[in-house]
Design a protein around this nucleic acid. Structure first.
Length: 423
DNA sequence: TCTCCGATTAGAC
DNA sequence: CTAACGGTCTAATCGGAGA
């Protein structure tokens, strides 16, 4: 008997955001549908019908809007509360299939299938179960490394004959080199557009080319990351399964505005909202931040207008996760950076110097200050129970004029009782 | 020359 | 009516400042 290589599956939802929307809108089943990014800016998810029309991933909506609407494409604003909830359900189901999983993104999960018999049948069972319990279609790719599992998943998605499952370990070396010789190197996990074109200069155009590239030259020209990718493509595992999600080292909250903003009070209002969101995330992982950065940006696509992209960083006197404390600093930074006469299009808050609460270098000269978390605890509790924004910090969203466009957002079907469809 | 640090780059989704 | 182009996150690498 041949010992099976430790098989790793990548389970990836098909057209995830569009599929989520269709669950509650069966009338959209065979209609071309796209989901737009925040502020209704770019296309971030496409149904197969929309892909067939040539609408590209990440394409600005205003660019393809006319053509899309001509073909009856329905464009929806993104509804992250809905997608996050459905994602959690999918991940919970997958964790029933293996004790070792890694939630890699909102719609992807690595699943360790070591020691499990009949992987093909198991993979079909995974697909069937997720489909039956959530209504969401997924594809399963299996390989002996993460990079091969990703590639296998790509093959499963691309070839209808695979019926949504592809196992790289089932290939002979001859079959593998023939297949990989027909796949563009840009399909490899970690090889984006820039690296693709740089690799092409060196004659590396297919996955097979990359597998066989001269190791020292590859290392010298493209660095360690590319060398790891190459090893992974050859079945040598270099990227471990990360079962527990590490705490964030940096937390960013930012948004483009629905329209241009010229008023400093409106900017401060927006920034107080970003602080509230960033600090809530910080508290959710039980950390404190010691550095805060605030930035403002004019519209970089409007080269006809004067550009100004200031940013200020301050170390906080004491690490904290208190929205009120951070909010005061943020407002101060906005005041300092603001220059009248510019049309601002975006702003944001970045928290860094993040460490677990109570584990940071204390200031020897200052007497230790008692940290009172009761107010923020209560705020989080209320916002969790009664919905985000029940209790606010500062003006946080009281001003209008900066909120993002969301012309066609679906109801929060699964997370808000009031949005429950009436049967 | 070495080290540290912030800025930049590239990628993923 | 018109203008209209996302948000977060990580790791590696680069380049300058200071020791």
């Amino acid at each position: 008997m041949v010992t099976a290589l430790s098989p790793l599956a990548l389970v990836d939802c098909n057209n995830f955001y569009v599929s989520c929307e269709r669950l509650f809108r069966p009338d959209l089943q065979r209609v071309p549908v796209v989901v737009l990014s925040n502020n209704d800016g770019c296309v971030v998810s496409r149904s197969n019908e929309a892909k067939a029309l040539g609408i590209r991933m990440g394409q600005p909506w205003f660019e393809c809007k006319a053509l899309a609407e001509q073909h009856g494409v329905l464009a929806l604003s993104s509804n992250y509360a809905l997608y996050a909830d459905l994602s959690n359900r999918v991940m919970r189901i997958l964790s029933d299939f293996s004790p070792r999983t890694e939630v890699y993104s909102i719609d992807e999960c690595f699943v360790d299938l070591s020691g499990m018999p009949d992987l093909r049948a198991l993979s079909y069972r995974i697909r069937q179960t997720v489909l039956k319990w959530t209504g969401l279609p997924v594809c399963v790719g299996i390989g002996s490394t993460k990079t091969l599992a990703k590639l296998a998943n790509h093959i499963a998605k691309k070839h209808p004959r695979s019926r949504g499952v592809f196992n790289d370990n089932d290939l002979s070396e001859a079959q593998r080199s023939r297949l990989f010789g027909r796949i563009d190197v840009g399909e490899v996990w970690g090889v984006g557009r820039r690296l693709s074109s740089r690799l092409a200069v060196h004659g590396i155009r297919t996955v097979q080319d990359l597998r066989q590239a001269h190791v020292p030259s590859l290392r010298a020209e493209f660095g360690v990351v590319m060398e790891k990718t190459q090893r992974e493509l050859n079945g040598l595992s270099c990227i471990d399964l990360q079962e527990v999600q590490a705490d964030k080292q940096q937390i960013i909250a930012s948004r483009s505005f629905g329209s241009m903003v010229e008023d400093v009070d409106v900017l401060k209002d927006a920034v107080s909202m970003f602080v509230a969101n960033a600090c809530a995330k910080l508290r959710a992982q039980g950390s404190h931040a010691s550095v805060i950065q605030v930035f403002l940006m004019t519209n970089r696509f409007r080269q006809d207008l004067p550009q100004y992209m200031p940013s200020l960083v301050v170390p906080l006197p004491q690490p904290t996760s208190d929205s009120l404390v951070v909010s005061r600093w943020a407002a101060h930074l906005v005041e300092r950076m603001f220059r009248a006469g510019y049309q601002y299009k975006k702003a944001g808050v970045m928290l860094s110097g993040i460490a677990p609460q109570g584990r940071y270098q204390t200031d020897w000269l200052e007497p230790p200050q008692a940290v009172d978390t009761r107010l923020m605890d209560a705020l989080d509790g209320l916002n969790q129970r009664y919905g985000r924004g029940t209790v606010k910090v500062s003006t946080q969203g009281a001003y209008t004029g900066w909120q993002m466009n969301q012309t066609c957002k679906s109801p929060d079907y699964t997370t808000d009782w009031h949005a429950m469809p009436v049967v």
